[in-house]
Design a binder for these strands. Structure first.
Length: 600
RNA sequence: GCGGGAGUAGUUCAGUUGGUUAGAACGUCGGCCUGUCACGCCGAAGGUCGCGGGUUCAAGUCCCGUCUCUCGCGCCA
């Protein structure tokens, strides 16, 4: 007989009745009836009820065991009396009559209750993460994560991709997020950087001839956290393909994502969530910013934004607040909210208050009633102009139209935020569905207001649409890139591009952004030399694993799908990271601290 | 870096206009209970009201500072 277990706690059924078994696990819960005691023993696989009564000399010992202690139970599998079978439990037909009982590891009183789904402060959950992970919800999330990653691997391999590892200790990349730096002992004063993504390595793998690469890749970025962004590190399904167009990349990854979401759409969802069928709708960046006010639109929200700047330019419209902004190059965007005419005043006031909190002067609106427009700015908009508004927005009697007026791009973004807010307040989001889209044709360059110069808006290694000719002849800010994102329910799942494999185009692209040939060569010498020794056209993308699991698990927060996340201050409250190091370690690394560390 | 919210028992929270000995639930401990499965019933212990300062006859409550957690903005090629 095995010393710990012959079966798991989720395994025993009516067919095992009569067998003598050994189970080990955590004491999930006890129900003590004095002369009769039930004890639920839990492991990764399930829960099994064990029972003991006053006939047994072991009763006092079992009675005194504390929750979450680890125990081994030896006993006979018996059928529960008919009335007492528990259909909620997979093992609910049977129970174990305890014959031997031993405590493997006794537990102290608990800082959080494992056997209840009660809310617990996140600092305590993170400090005792191993207990939190025992709880059902988080335990299920982690199993989902494992299954999702396994499914992704299988699907990628089936599509002819092969998995390769790339370095963790690498060099700092000058663009993008802040790097995590690792001091070099052998090279005083020099640093490695942890990769923000294996971007250059995956391109080098294409140049090395591997054709289709993928990796469940750890990525490190020293940026502040958000609900959907863990500080420090996260995982991407990083992939890259050679001899492909943008459409080839889409065609390769769509079935993987659609398949994974379809496979796990029933996790905590009954019925399983619907998924937009592939091919996913493609929305050019410019259209997304106009219609949804965002480059990651949530398509569950049916509301759309319409530009009505021309209406407020009309001579008969006397709304100075908007006209002044328009004269300075601003735009008026509006959102039609169907059938809200009968909403109480508080509905509109609440939205107006929200807009003020966002830093806008307010959220103007007109309610179109049968006898004309009502609302705070209706009186500035004469009937002919109102008619024009209704034509543009397709608003009907009983509908309202909300206005945002600002310069670009702030006006577009504010309209997008208002679209989300109004949609939430109206509760018009489609339920139980994953709505995917591609956002395509991102601008290649953008204007850096801070440094007053043109800079790359995304990846400098992306291929500009139109190639060298576009760079030579077009207004840089009008050039698009073969750069695309996948968005699901308002969450940016991935960013990708067809890469620029031509040194000639690359030199020119960097020149326009103000970088000399020498800059380019010193920063990206390795990659650049590779491009000069036979580089295939290639492209790829990198969907975020954590975000995919977060969506599937229906969690509002990415830390709920990471086993050991850092807190918002990028600290590990269990392992006490980051931490000070002994002076001799610093000396070895040739590092002298300018200030002593803050107390931890 | 900036803004919002929170911090009271082991945990989750309540605590009125500043006024008696700071409460509840769960957990813990003790007692009773032979068919429970969130078992039930009775009882008890458990508090630097985050920390520091101030106002006041009196502060969990008001003011100032500070720390911690969290959400958002900036940031995130």
């Amino acid at each position: 007989m095995h010393p710990y277990r012959t079966h798991t706690c989720g395994q025993l059924r009516a067919g095992h009745i009569g067998q003598h078994v050994t189970l080990s696990g955590w004491v999930h819960r006890k129900r003590d009836h004095g002369s009769l005691l039930f004890i639920d023993v839990r492991d990764h696989y399930g829960i099994t009820q064990c029972v003991i009564d006053r006939e047994s000399p072991l009763l006092p010992q079992v009675e005194s065991i504390k929750n979450e202690s680890v125990v081994t139970v030896v006993g006979k599998v018996v059928r529960r009396p008919d009335e007492t079978q528990n259909s909620k439990l997979a093992t609910g037909e049977i129970e174990i009559e305890i014959e031997k009982f031993s405590v493997i590891s006794a537990a102290d009183p608990l800082p959080l209750q494992v056997n209840a789904d009660a809310p617990v402060g996140e600092d305590i959950r993170l400090r005792y993460r191993f207990l939190d992970l025992r709880r059902e919800r988080l335990h299920e999330n982690m199993m989902l994560r494992s299954q999702v990653i396994a499914s992704i691997r299988r699907r990628m391999i089936d599509q002819g991709f092969m998995e390769y590892q790339t370095p963790i200790l690498t060099s700092s990349s000058p663009e993008g997020a802040r790097d995590f730096l690792v001091p070099s002992r052998l090279h005083p004063g020099k640093f490695y950087a942890l990769p923000q993504a294996p971007q250059q390595f995956k391109q080098l793998l294409m140049i090395a001839g591997f054709d289709r690469y993928f990796q469940i890749a750890p990525c490190f970025r020293d940026e502040d956290s958000r609900a959907d962004r863990s500080p420090g590190e996260f995982y991407q399904l990083d992939f890259e393909m050679s001899y492909v167009t943008q459409e080839d990349v889409f065609a390769a990854i769509e079935p993987v994502l659609h398949g994974v979401f379809h496979e796990f759409a029933g996790f905590r969802r009954q019925p399983p969530a619907a998924i937009t069928p592939a091919p996913f709708v493609r929305i050019p960046y410019d259209e997304a910013m106009l219609t949804y006010g965002s480059d990651k639109p949530d398509l569950r929200n049916p509301l759309v934004i319409v530009d009505v700047t021309d209406v407020f330019k009309r001579a008969d419209v006397e709304f100075k607040a908007f006209k002044q902004v328009i004269e300075q190059g601003g735009v008026v965007r509006c959102i039609r909210a169907p059938k809200v005419g009968d909403k109480p005043r508080s509905f509109f006031d609440k939205l107006n208050d929200w807009a003020r909190e966002q830093g806008a002067p307010g959220l103007g609106y007109i309610v179109f009633e049968a006898d004309g427009g009502k609302g705070p700015i209706a009186k500035f908009v004469p009937e002919a102009a109102q008619h024009e508004l209704r034509k543009l927005t397709k608003a009907e009697a009983g509908d309202a139209v909300f206005f945002v007026c600002d310069k670009l791009p702030a006006g577009a973004k504010m309209a997008g935020a208002a679209r989300n807010k109004i949609g939430q307040e109206m509760d018009v989001y489609e339920k139980n569905i994953f709505k995917f889209c591609w956002i395509t044709d991102f601008p290649f360059y953008e204007w850096d207001e801070e440094r007053k110069k043109i800079d790359f808006s995304h990846n400098p290694f992306s291929m500009p649409q139109g190639g060298l000719e576009a760079l030579l002849t077009k207004d840089p800010l009008s050039i698009k890139a073969y750069q695309y994102d996948i968005v699901c329910n308002g969450v940016e799942l991935s960013s990708g591009a067809i890469r620029n494999h031509s040194p000639e185009i690359m030199y020119k692209a960097f020149e326009i952004a103000g970088y000399s040939a020498a800059d380019l060569e010193s920063r990206f010498g390795g990659l650049l030399s590779a491009f000069k020794l036979g580089a295939p056209p290639h492209g790829g993308s990198a969907p975020g694993i954590d975000r995919i699991v977060m969506l599937l698990a229906d969690e509002p927060n990415i830390r709920e799908v990471v086993a050991f996340p850092l807190n918002q201050q990028a600290e590990d409250m269990m392992m006490q990271a980051p931490n000070t190091v002994p002076p001799e370690r610093l000396r070895e690394l040739n590092i002298q601290l300018k200030t002593s560390p803050q107390k931890g």
